[in-house]
Amino acid sequence: MRWKNLSEQTVYENRWFRVNLADVELPDGHHLDHYLIRLRPVAVATVVNEANEVLLLWRHRFITDTWGWELPAGVVEDGEAVAEAAAREMEEETGWRPGPLRHLLSVEPSNGLSDARHHIYWAEDADYVGPPEDAFESDRREWVPLKLIPDIVARGEVPAANMAAALLLLHHIRLG
């Protein structure tokens, strides 16, 4: 059954997202008002080194008041290629410049509410270029053994579903 978005109007907008109200027609012909969030694409990156360790951020999310492991991420700027944005975010948030990036996966973390698409990349090497510009984004940056990832995810230490999916896929690819 397909729902039809007949029209949308913006009710709030800033540089990161828009909140729209849609007139949705259901398969039985009824209509409902549905709020949705329109977001820019998000670029995510990490590196897995020769020792099969993955570079992670330990950070607090004030919205949920939780701590957890994450990958460096941010919105893709106008005119910026997604892979370039992923490399930029990794360097800004960790101080490590990734080598050639490989696309790992793209996910829609909340497709019942938002059109957000997260594009996740990884590299097999990186160069340390200095302290992160955006050090305020995480409490610490650590190289975590990939072999520990399934247990870390199972304990809830990677609360973001997109990050958990990416880390479990990297674990499978490298240690599978």
Rank of each mutant, 00 (worst) to 15 (best):
R40K: 12
W96I: 08
F136H: 14
V48R: 02
G68P: 10
R102S: 10
R15E: 12
R38S: 08
H30R: 15
A73K: 05
N49H: 08
I63N: 13
P72Q: 03
L55N: 09
R102L: 09
H118G: 03
P132L: 13
H34G: 00
G68N: 12
E133S: 15
R102E: 13
G74V: 03
E108N: 07
A86W: 06
R40I: 00
V75C: 01
E92V: 04
G95Q: 06
E13C: 00
V19E: 04
S110G: 04
A73Y: 00
G68A: 12
L26K: 15
A126C: 11
N52P: 03
L32H: 03
D78K: 07
S106A: 12
A73V: 03
R97Q: 13
P109A: 05
E84S: 15
G68F: 12
E108V: 04
P27C: 13
D134G: 11
H118Y: 06
E50Y: 09
S106Q: 09
A45L: 01
E84Y: 09
P41Y: 03
E50F: 05
E92S: 08
D28F: 12
R102N: 12
W67D: 13
R97C: 09
L36P: 02
H118K: 02
G112Y: 06
Y121A: 00
V47P: 01
L32K: 14
Y121R: 01
W67T: 11
T64D: 12
I120E: 00
S110H: 05
V54N: 07
R117S: 08
A126H: 08
G74A: 08
G112D: 10
P27F: 10
L39D: 03
P72D: 08
D78N: 05
G79S: 09
D33G: 09
E89Y: 09
L105R: 07
E133Y: 14
P109L: 02
P98H: 01
V44A: 04
A135F: 15
A126Q: 09
R15H: 10
W58A: 11
